[in-house]
Nucleic acid binder design. Structure first.
Lengths: 338, 338
DNA sequence: TGTCAACCTGTGCACGGTCACAGGCTGTGA
DNA sequence: TCACAGCCTGTGACCGTGCACAGGTTGACA
């Protein structure tokens, strides 16, 4: 019997109570943990729930409790950089799945333009979601400052440079990953490993360079480093620069796959074969890595694990746990370019 | 003054009413359209809203109205095919933006596994969202049947083959797009245009082939058609088949960019130059189209417009309008391959 | 002057839960 | 026999909004 006692609409907690011969309070107790409820009452309620086909009304529950049972996936990327990368989709999907497993849902918030940012901030501040999964590459994001100031539970994807300790985060081991790649390049016999680094105000720009420097130790030489901004074009330009400053280089570690793609194009233009003359290593294992010519050796970011971890961490923060910063290992994916 | 009259929590409609010297009902009327309310009362309420910093509580509103002010973006792709394509992200982002403009939000629902499908169906049936933006490539999707049976407002992305007329949809002009591509190939002097078609139980498989056939008219020849399943590998295999059956072909129209990528690989393997010996045209303008070697000439799907149109259509359906099917034009993007 | 429509306003109830509190029952120990 | 703790249950208030209804005011018109 899936009809309701009252006859109209979906069965409510009252219908269940009536069917079970108990009060609303008891039904509520059974639904939420069920402490201090006699076995007979619990069984009766559970049967009544099954009989009536009762499902709790989230809107009513949210109104009463103030919680919403959903998290926001907040994107603060003005450009479509993240969007263009299949990894982003993996992150999004992973988060949605991790939430679905807990009976929660994911609300997608896009905050590209200033107007959108305001709306998103208002939406979050209004308590429509219990917390925020923040996806942002920029270190000095004012939106993050806003979230922190309002005390909204937040987990950042990637280390939030200006807010260390103030907000929980999940990030890949940038330094360790960079060191792994440099070690790999040198292990295959390369002597002079150059680097195309990213902007220093992003964690990927800063810490991947740190890892490169750490691994090289005394062999580190400023002339072998050039900078890009994660675009393909900037990688190509940085490579041009390196070929002038350090023409004897025999390997390049790019701080992102996109910049590696640009670097490869430049190398080819100048007649340097990849990987025969110059080995090229990237970072991210973005979608284009496998389809590049030659297929790119790179550091894989475990976005599926990262998103699951972010969800777990955020729920902890919501429950009152202190902020934590979790680091996930990057893994070397050897293809052809190095 | 952004504090509340009662002192605790956020200001409610009562606080606004008190501040404006009117009743709750009048405040409610001002908020919702404001018909039948005197100019003075409206002004007083508006000022009171600004003074108190009042924002309407969606949970309470949803409980009272039964509406949720959000739509679901429902993905029914078992594999990550859609996810791997940046176009998917454009679709998602476009939908989120179109909703944000209306003060609504987008809930992401992933229904890959059977369990996920059930949960998603239950979630939707529970009235957590007002309607569903369905993203599915499979024609006979049981989830769609379920949605239709339950009378849940739905808009499909792409023509839902088994449900013509039963559900609103937004799709690209498959036939017209295919004809445009074939016309382009012939206009550049190609005489024997072959086709790598997709599965006939998908709209892209069926209608792009129809367009190809229509455009060729009397010149259509069954031997010049092979089938794939949208994967790169299947495109490569179909191309092998075509080279055997119709070795004199001088152009290929692939029903997707991924299959075009496979076709190009096969052609190169057999020493046919692209586009010198064989011109290749694709469909979708997927992310990989621009980075293929040579860059792929293809039909661009306007996913940004499609998503906005889907949202508009779904809101119409929710408002009680009859189901409509809207077709958006695909545009030819000429790169190097044809 | 009475009737009536058009306009504006306030009030009570409903939406479907949660939670605090009071109170009943039972068994134990003084 | 009484006090009291431990367990279980029911009730009323409340979360913040929308909506139907009733009623009040005003002006036009017969």
């Amino acid at each position: 019997m899936v009809s309701t006692a009252t006859g109209r609409g979906r069965p409510t907690i009252r219908d269940v109570a009536a069917a079970a011969g108990v009060s609303r309070g008891t039904v509520s107790r059974v639904i939420n943990g069920g402490h201090w409820v006699s076995p007979e009452a619990r069984e009766a309620v559970e049967r009544a729930i099954a009989d009536t086909g009762y499902r709790t009304n989230q809107h009513a529950r949210s109104l009463a409790t103030g919680r919403s049972n959903s998290l926001a996936f907040l994107l603060t990327e003005p450009q479509d950089m993240l969007f263009a990368d299949p990894n982003f989709a993996i992150l999004l999907r992973g988060a949605a799945e991790a939430l679905a497993r807990r009976g929660m849902t994911l609300v997608l918030l896009v905050a590209g333009t200033p107007t959108e940012r305001e709306n998103a901030a208002a939406y979050v501040a209004d308590g429509h979601v219990d917390g925020v999964l923040l996806i942002s590459t920029h270190a000095d994001d004012p939106l993050l400052a806003d979230l922190v100031a309002r005390g909204i539970p937040t987990v950042s994807c990637g280390l939030p440079l200006g807010f260390t300790g103030q907000v929980a985060s999940v990030s890949v081991d940038e330094i360790g990953g960079a060191r792994t790649m440099v070690r790999h390049l040198r292990a295959t016999g390369r002597q002079r490993v150059a680097m195309v680094a990213g902007p220093l105000d992003t964690p990927g720009g800063r810490y991947r360079l740190d890892g490169y420097r750490d691994e090289l130790g005394a062999d580190f030489d400023e002339r072998y480093v050039a900078y890009g901004d994660y675009t393909v074009e900037s990688g190509a330009a940085a490579m041009e620069e390196l070929l002038v400053r350090a023409p004897d280089l025999d390997a390049v570690f790019a701080a992102s796959d996109t910049m590696a793609a640009g670097a490869i194009a430049t190398l080819r233009k100048h007649g340097r074969r990849v990987p025969d003359d110059v080995a090229v290593g990237g970072f991210d294992d973005a979608g284009l890595a496998a389809t590049l010519d030659p297929p790119l050796t790179t550091m894989h970011q475990p976005f599926d694990l990262i998103s699951a971890e972010m969800v777990g961490l955020l729920l902890d923060v919501i429950a009152g746990a202190p902020h934590k910063s979790v680091t996930m290992p990057a893994s070397l994916v050897v293809r052809t370019s190095a």
